[in-house]
Amino acid sequence: MDTTTTDHAADIDRHVRVYITVFASLMVLTIVTVGVSRFHFPVPVAVTLALLVATVKGTLVACYFMHLISEKKLIIAIMALTVVFFLVLVALPILTVSDGLGIHG
């Protein structure tokens, strides 16, 4: 086995250790999500906590399993733009309600 092959193997081994750590973190965070929901917090607090934990989990999956953390700038730019449009899309119905145009307005 030459030096390049050894380096490559060591690199993959390091990746595998990261995958296992992320896997364990995702498992723990899933239990945390379910645990927090049992406290029956008021809806705004419960939504914030649940989405916060889900965002952390989603970021771990995207960054490490999907390798977004080491991806080319073009891919990161495409996904960043997508996230912006996604946030606008989900913010629209919230704004519709909060500015008094919704049913509860």
Binding site: T30, T33, V34, A46, L51, A54, V61, F65
Partner: peptide, 20 residues
């Protein structure tokens, strides 16, 4: 990448539908 995306969607669906 597609499979991880499917996992990622479920990560948000689970609390949204089942816990809130």
């Amino acid at each position: 990448l597609f499979w991880h995306f499917v996992d990622l969607v479920w990560i948000f669906l689970f609390p949204t539908l089942y816990l809130l």
